[in-house]
């Protein structure tokens, strides 16, 4: 029952509960509060505004139809909503849209650098007293980069290996070890 109480305290959780009851104003309140942030999250992954808008549009339909499945044991309402947008954006990438984002190699390289800076900025932007910020900082640089490229930029193992110029197998084991170190650090 404690979980239910927590969900009631959480405004987003309450709005999700409204969605589950078929109350559209609940979805509108989530949209008003979260859409700008979710668009930015999606755009960091798909790298194109119009595609990011489609991702967010599809994600809100998903939020609406799945709201009744949300329970606090699935994490915070904000984390749950964000995960729906992230999954949608990652699936869009996997459908092969990464290649559509740019039309030539030079532009790709330019955007990649731009993207790389943005990915690293997401770490620097974390609160000074954030545990995640400290723990990411305690990793060696390649592991930190690999983890941030995957989470923030939606890069696959292969793409990370290519961009960091390290073999695929090494990339996989470094990221795995980096994630383990991060879990221990944040425990």
């Amino acid at each position: 029952m404690l979980g239910v109480v927590q969900a009631e305290l959480d405004e987003l959780g309450a709005n999700l509960a409204a969605c589950a009851r078929g109350d559209r104003s609940g979805l509108k309140r989530i949209f008003d509060g979260e859409a700008g942030r979710l668009l930015a999250v999606a755009e960091r992954i798909v790298r194109r505004r119009d595609v990011a808008e489609e991702v967010v549009q599809e994600a809100f339909l998903r939020i609406w139809t799945s709201a009744h499945q949300y329970t606090p044991d699935r994490g915070s309402a904000r984390g749950w909503i964000t995960a729906i947008v992230r999954n949608r954006a990652l699936n869009t990438l996997r459908d092969g849209r990464r290649e559509d984002l740019v039309a030539d190699d030079r532009l790709e390289a330019l955007l990649d650098r731009d993207q790389f800076d943005r990915i690293m900025a997401s770490w620097h932007r974390l609160d000074q007293d954030s545990r995640l910020r400290d723990c990411l900082g305690s990793l060696d640089e390649t592991k930190r980069r690999g983890i941030l490229m995957a989470y923030v930029g939606g890069y696959s193992h292969g793409e990370i290996a290519g961009r960091l110029r390290i073999p695929l197998g090494t990339t996989k084991s470094w990221i795995r070890r980096g994630l383990m170190a991060l879990r221990e650090c944040m425990a």
Partner: peptide, 8 residues
């Protein structure tokens, strides 16, 4: 990482 960013 997904909450501190500038909203679009």
């Amino acid at each position: 990482l997904d909450t501190g960013l500038e909203p679009a």
